[in-house]
Write a protein that binds this DNA or RNA. Structure first.
Lengths: 223, 223
DNA sequence: GAAAGAGGTGAAAATTATTTCACATGTTCA
DNA sequence: TGAACATGTGAAATAATTTTCACCTCTTTC
């Protein structure tokens, strides 16, 4: 079932109304915003605000324009809301964290290293995309899983308590951020690399030397 | 001679400034006109017109916006007037090609497999981002370089003649799409894998069984 | 420890825009 | 030949919007 907006027969315009409509359309193409009544008046050589208002009123009545009462530049072309190019939700722009501010995890977001737009399809199951972060992998410890040093990690912030055994986590260890598979066994956190040149490390859950930022959802890499 | 729009170094934004800029962009996409300061404030939960004004001022100072003093909705995205056809500077939405339509490379774009938004920072040096493509790696032949089967490859379309030896290329071989390092030696195309379980293959440049789609710029992977 | 910057409140002032009023002059159409 | 409509002028009232002030809290930087 398609919701077809009633065809909305557009009534015929008088020459002056057509001038007005053409001016408004031209103005919007050029300035990317609607004109004020005064600007329309100037464009058409009309000195009276009222005269312009009546012309606009006629265009609204005949189905060419829509008007938001009392709003500055409150005009819009009729049917503009059906614009197929309109994106009402832009993909989130995520903050890239740098590893220089690692000592206090609460301040992770304080020194932004820029932003990166990430398609929501790379954030599966995420409820609040804007709360995700991006960081760079600090070493090659996950080479075996195709994560290399410098890769961009898309991270959903989460406590280690919320991670399941075997998930890939982003962890701040000292000054560096690493991707590792995380396991919670015998009251200790195990960070397991996927490369035989690296060794598994374990920490007490509250060890300030190891802070689990969250789960790694996706990776991105510029070749 | 390329008409490069003046570099206009955009300075780094604070998180709050980024929120503001994203809100304004989103509003403009949605409403096709700039927001008022009050509307921005409502969107960001700021009660003071002055606070909004300062944020906008910072965005103007840092080169993201332009402002027409005293005008209602007097904002515009920086550079919008130099490129009137640019709707906004939303990141490009790239077409994902599926390997089902591989027989006729000219028709690569005919059966879209969806679109993915890709940040321009993952498209280094690309002049026409919208002409890039996305495809999935068909095998594990580049495991050694951290590209796995199923990874999303961001591809800049290019003839094999435009690729330099050693670049990572996306190639359609038969029904499958592979990432490989490409070499042109002794009048033949060499597709070199980065995994010892795979062997290098060579083709005559015009062999219809091997079509080079372009260079791989970036990869993305959902874990 | 002073200075500078980011981000904020709240209120008043200045500007810009829209709306409404009274009053015109035509044209069109039943 | 009215009634209804299209097009205007000009002024005043109202509402929306931007600008400016004074002042505040943090945090970073030198």
């Amino acid at each position: 079932m398609q919701k077809r907006p009633a065809p909305r027969e557009k009534k015929r315009l008088t020459p002056r109304q057509n001038d007005t409509f053409e001016f408004i359309r031209g103005y919007m193409r050029k300035h990317r915003k609607p004109p004020t009544l005064r600007e329309i008046g100037e464009g058409l050589g009309i000195r009276s605000g009222n005269a312009v208002s009546k012309l606009v009123e006629a265009l609204v009545r005949k189905g060419y324009l829509e008007r938001e009462p009392n709003a500055a530049r409150g005009l819009r072309l009729a049917g503009a809301e059906e614009d197929p190019f309109r994106l009402d939700d832009a993909p989130p722009n995520l903050l890239i964290i740098s590893r220089t501010n690692s000592r206090e995890p609460e301040r992770l977001r304080e020194r932004p290293g820029g932003y990166l737009t990430v398609d929501p399809r790379l954030l599966p199951g995420v409820r609040h995309p804007d709360r995700c972060l991006i960081a760079r992998a600090g070493d090659d410890g996950m080479n075996g899983d195709g994560i290399h040093k410098g890769d961009l990690l898309v991270i959903e912030e989460a406590s280690w308590k919320d991670l399941r055994n075997g998930e890939v986590a982003a962890c701040l260890v000292g000054e560096m951020l690493y991707a590792r598979r995380i396991f919670f066994l015998n009251d200790r956190l195990h960070l397991r690399p996927a490369d035989r040149h690296y060794t598994e490390e374990t920490f007490a859950p509250e060890d300030p030397g190891c802070y689990v930022v969250g789960r790694v959802l996706s990776i991105m890499r510029r070749l």
